[in-house]
Amino acid sequence: MKINAPNKNIPELVSFNILAMGCQIQVNLNITSLSLLCSKIEIEQHTALLASDVQQKLTYWEHIFSRFDDSSELMRLNNHTDQWRDVSAELFEVLQRAIQFVPKTQGLVTPTLLQSLWAAGYKHSFETLPKLSMPTVPVIDPSATLNINSTAKESFQDTPVVNYDNQNIERIQLRRLADGQYQVYLPAGMALDLNGYVKGWCAMQLAEYISQIHDWQIPCLVDMGGDIAIGMPKHQGTDVAITPIAWGVAIAKPYIIDSKQKQVHDDEDVAILKIRSGAVATSGQDYRRWWYDGRWQHHLIHPHYSRPVTSDVLTATVLATDTMTAEVYAKYCVMLGLKAAMAWLNKNHIAALLIDFDNKVMATSALDPYLVKPNLIASIGA
C-alpha cells in the first residue's frame, strides 16, 4: 500500500519514515490546525521530537516481541515452557487477543506456528533470506509453484503432519495476579510467533497515541509495512470525535517473479480507497517469499500441514475497526481460498478486496462505499 493525499480540500500533511520491526514505517500527520498556530520551524522541531518518541516506542516493543532476538521477552517465554512466566502487559494483551482470534478463524490463524516457520527456513529476519531461486524454476505460476490446481500425490497438503498437541491453543494459560503482575503458562513443545499480530497492534497503538494522547492530538495515519491505522483526535475533555478527514489509500498490484527470478512490483494501482477511520491491512503470498529446501516458501503457514498454505488467493486486503483485526482477517482469507473467503466476507458484511493468481480483482459489496475508482475492480459483491 501507499498513501495518497485526498482528492479534494487537501490538508497540510507532514510525514516521517522509520525502519523498525522488520518493515518500513511511515507516519503521516495532518498539521492543518497546527499550521495556524505554529511556525514552520516549530512544526519541524516538534515533528522531529515526535519521530524520536515513536522510534523509542518501537524499539521498546521490538525488545518485547522480536523472534529474531533470543533476549526478547517473547523468546525468553518460548525458551522457558511448562512453567508460569512473568510477562509485560503488552505481551499479555497481544497474546490474549491472538488467542481470541483462533476460534473466529476456525483455528487457521494461530500464534503457535513458530516451529513451522523455522522448518520453512524463516529463522532470520526477512531481508536476510534468499530471494532468488535455482535457474530451473519458472516464472511464478500457481499451479507450478504452489500446487493450487495440482492433483499429484506430492502436493504440499496431501497429508496432515501437524502435532495437534503442540497447536492446541487451549493449553496456553494466562492470569493476572493480585499485585497486577501478568503471567503466561506455555506448554512444553510449543513456541509462539506474534509478528503479524504485533504489526497491527503497534500501528493502532501509535495512531491512538499520536491522535489522542500526545500533546498535539492531531489526525494521523500510521502505515507499518501495509498495516494501516487511522488516528482521530477527540474534543478535549469529551469522548466525541471531531470530524475526520478522508485519507486516500492505494492498493497496488501484487509482487510477481519475473523471467530472471527477481521479485518485481508493478506501480499500477488496482484500487483506491477513501477511509476516515479504522484500519486496513493486506496479507498475501506475493511479497514475503524466500527460496528454501528446493522450493519457494512464504510466511502464511497452514496449521493442519505445518507448511506454507496452498491457496488461489494471492493477496487479501481487509478493512476493520482496528489493524490487528484487519491483519488477522486478511490472513484468514488467504487460508480459506477465493470462493470460501468471498462467501465468508459477504456473509459478515466485511469490506475487502481479493486478488487471485491471474491478477483478477474481486471486492465485497461492503467495500463499494470506500472505492474512489470502482471501475478498476473486475467484480464487486461476487
Rank of each mutant, 00 (worst) to 15 (best):
M232Q: 12
I218V: 08
N346E: 15
L113V: 07
G226R: 10
A207M: 08
E44H: 03
S379G: 03
D86I: 07
R288K: 15
E73F: 05
R175C: 01
Q96E: 11
W344M: 04
L221W: 14
R307Y: 11
I228R: 15
E90Q: 15
K57N: 13
L74Q: 03
K199V: 02
L221M: 11
F65H: 14
R176P: 01
G278F: 06
C220P: 09
S311W: 13
D86E: 15
Q115F: 13
A351L: 07
T145Q: 15
I245Y: 09
G196D: 03
G121L: 09
I272F: 15
I43V: 05
W247K: 05
V161M: 14
N163D: 10
I213R: 05
N78G: 04
S52F: 01
S306D: 10
N195V: 13
Q157R: 03
L174K: 01
W216L: 02
G180D: 09
H80S: 14
H302T: 02
P244W: 09
Q183G: 08
T112I: 12
E208Q: 09
A320Y: 14
V264G: 08
G284T: 00
I218E: 05
F92I: 00
V27L: 14
I350H: 07
S379W: 07
D179G: 04
V162I: 05
P254C: 04
A144Q: 11
S15G: 01
Y332T: 01
K104Q: 14
S66W: 09
L367P: 13
V161C: 02
F126Y: 10
Q115I: 07
V161P: 05
S150W: 09
T238Q: 12
N30E: 08
E42D: 12
T112G: 07
D286I: 04
W118G: 09
G107S: 15
A20R: 14
I41C: 13
I172W: 00
Q285N: 12
L367K: 13
N348L: 08
G200I: 02
L194A: 00
M1K: 05
L319W: 01
L192M: 04
F156S: 06
P244D: 14
L194T: 00
Q205Y: 00
T159I: 13
G381R: 15
W291Q: 06
K153P: 03
V162D: 10
V264C: 12
L146A: 11
F16D: 02
I64E: 13
E73I: 02
I99C: 05
I218P: 06
D179T: 03
R76S: 05
N30Y: 10
V240N: 06
A188D: 06
K331C: 03
A378I: 00
Q261R: 12
T282K: 06
S72L: 03
F65Y: 15
E90M: 13
W61Q: 15
R175D: 00
E12R: 14
V361S: 13
H299Y: 03
R289I: 14
S365R: 10
C23P: 02
L19G: 13
L29N: 06
I18Y: 02
K339G: 02
E62M: 05
G107T: 10
